[in-house]
Design a protein around this nucleic acid. Structure first.
Lengths: 323, 323
DNA sequence: GGAAATCGGGAAAAGGTTTACATCGCGCTT
DNA sequence: AAGCGCGATGTAAACCTTTTCCCGATTTCC
């Protein structure tokens, strides 16, 4: 220990940790000694004593999904700025594993940030009980004190429906996300809105990944839609790819829209019409909510419709569209 | 404590942790009690005592980069399978921040996994000293005991050069990655290989992100290349996007190639010719190397050339290409 | 000038677990 | 039948800090 190097024992703590009164002279001596010996307080001991690890746990369904990666990035950056570390766990979209990871992580960290958790509500309650603090992203837990940051996806779907309806679309396929995803239900809510009332919505099971999107296209086409709305942009990219493979042109033959505005969405060909959500803001808000300062219930984040090249008038059926 | 609930003190530990001999009867009693009280051993105390936190630190230059996200995913999965947690830090491509994060993380974890570290060699040595264990991904540290898992990018570049040369390309722009990236130097090495001897390689400063790629295109075009090789696929997607914006057709007007085979690379339009590296394998190998079992120096991973639609014969200049 | 208040620093306890050591009882060997 | 050994359990130390309490000294105020 650096104690021997100089004089005291608890004084070291006062110098290195608390803002307790220490004479500048002694403080310097301690700092120099610590520097010399390369002394670093043991985090485990600190944690044990002060009862906080200055660490946050983040659980996401899929680390490979750019959307979650972005959110994680945002959270990690915010946490680091607040001198917290980030413990991360990917769950491969498996609710069981998600539950276990969350419970396990809860032992280590000061609090948990759950991204779009797929687990059941009762289980979520268990987690809420096990964790010292809990913030949900894109999910809410009613009748509880746990805070949430959610994107108003139903508004996104409404905007998308309105946009497509105004272009003249009537038959639209919606490629569903994971059934366990709360955020998928929010999207579904959007389809029951006035904006969607004139539209025929066909739901096709899909998933949340690029490959899921690819594979759902063929079934989607059997319903002969003039447009496809995808669970997210990741899926949409897969859809675009498969459509191209089938020789269909977007948007001339069929329109495609995504949700989330992934980083790549502006750079696909054609650019993806989507409902843009700021992941940075999402991460920031989540951290804000995590911090003891603010304890409001749920924060709603709105995105905005971004129209790019992937949506246009439906082909023929009535008048030639592009005048 | 659950001790009171039943009978003993250290027996609890024997039941819950070690495989020490305990009579089945007592073991059951302990388990039931633990269940009732919801008792969980305190990780900090465990860490403090056993001197290991069963946690690994992963530092990556950019969490938003799908390539690193994939690697992180692989590592986290492997670590979880081995009952380890994953502490993560993104460094925004800042060597200084990277160094600080690594040093700080080293205090907490059993070992560090550094992804494509940008920091200087001396600093890297400092980190190697501070960390209990250290594994490098896409970087080597000579004259040291730290293990590495690296992709043989120079082979990738050679393959790409050979491919492009065989198509008839002569002038190629290489969009450089971050200058601090060791892996960029590896790529550069590839350009000094026999396969590239007949080619004129023009180096243009770029970066590692999609936006970097977009922005480098205009300068690249001033050199009138017939092909562009990008630092990675992420950059290449940005390049494709900008080229399309400029009204240039790929591969008819210009060929584009990436490196890494990001998940989206098969789904761009056109599909991206690239040097495919298995991030799964990379993560797996890194974990393997991290584990005390294996201590070999550096593992070399080879990728393979994947030819997709983004590369073809150069336009005119000599014979019409497409037969 | 003396007493009280304040400030700086030291000793020691606490925080929760693991593990080495000691203890105790029982079965087996000779 | 007695001793020995092994298996099962309790006791206590150790892990490394932080923090509370306390004491000594210096300063300030009356």
């Amino acid at each position: 220990m650096a104690r021997l190097a100089e004089v005291s024992t608890a004084t070291v703590s006062r110098v290195l940790s608390g803002g307790k009164p220490v004479s500048p002279e002694v403080a310097d001596r301690v700092r120099v000694a610590a520097q010399d010996v390369g002394y670093r307080p043991n985090p485990a001991a600190q944690t044990l004593l002060r009862g906080s690890s200055r660490t946050v746990g983040v659980v996401v369904p899929d680390l490979g999904n750019p959307y979650f990666a972005e959110i994680l990035k945002g959270i990690a950056a915010e946490a680091a700025a607040d001198e917290h570390h980030t413990l991360v766990a990917g769950t491969e979209e498996d609710p069981e594993q998600e539950y276990r990871s969350a419970i396990e992580l809860a032992r280590w960290v000061d609090g948990l940030l759950l991204c779009a958790p797929r687990m059941s509500t009762p289980r979520l309650r268990e987690v809420a009980e096990a964790a010292r603090r809990l913030v949900l992203i894109n999910r809410v837990l009613r009748h509880s004190a746990v805070g949430s940051v959610v994107v108003d996806y139903h508004l996104g779907v409404r905007a998308l429906c309105e946009h497509l309806a105004s272009l003249g679309h009537k038959r639209i396929v919606y490629l569903q996300g994971p059934t366990a995803a709360w955020s998928d239900q929010q999207r579904q809510r959007g389809f029951r809105s006035p904006e969607a009332s004139g539209l025929t919505i066909i739901r096709v099971e899909c998933g949340s990944t690029l490959v899921d999107g690819r594979e759902a296209v063929d079934e989607a086409l059997t319903y002969q839609p003039t447009a496809i709305i995808c669970f997210n942009d990741h899926v949409a990219v897969g859809v675009l790819s498969r459509l191209r493979e089938l020789g269909l042109s977007v948007p001339a033959d069929i329109s495609v829209a995504g949700i989330d505005d992934a980083p790549m969405s502006a750079h696909t060909d054609p650019g993806l019409t989507t409902y843009a959500v700021s992941t940075v803001e999402l991460g920031r808000q989540a951290w804000e909510r995590f911090t003891p300062r603010v304890t409001t219930a749920t924060t709603h984040l709105q995105g905005e419709l971004v129209v790019r090249g992937s949506t246009a008038h439906p082909p023929r059926r009535g008048a030639r569209t592009s005048r």
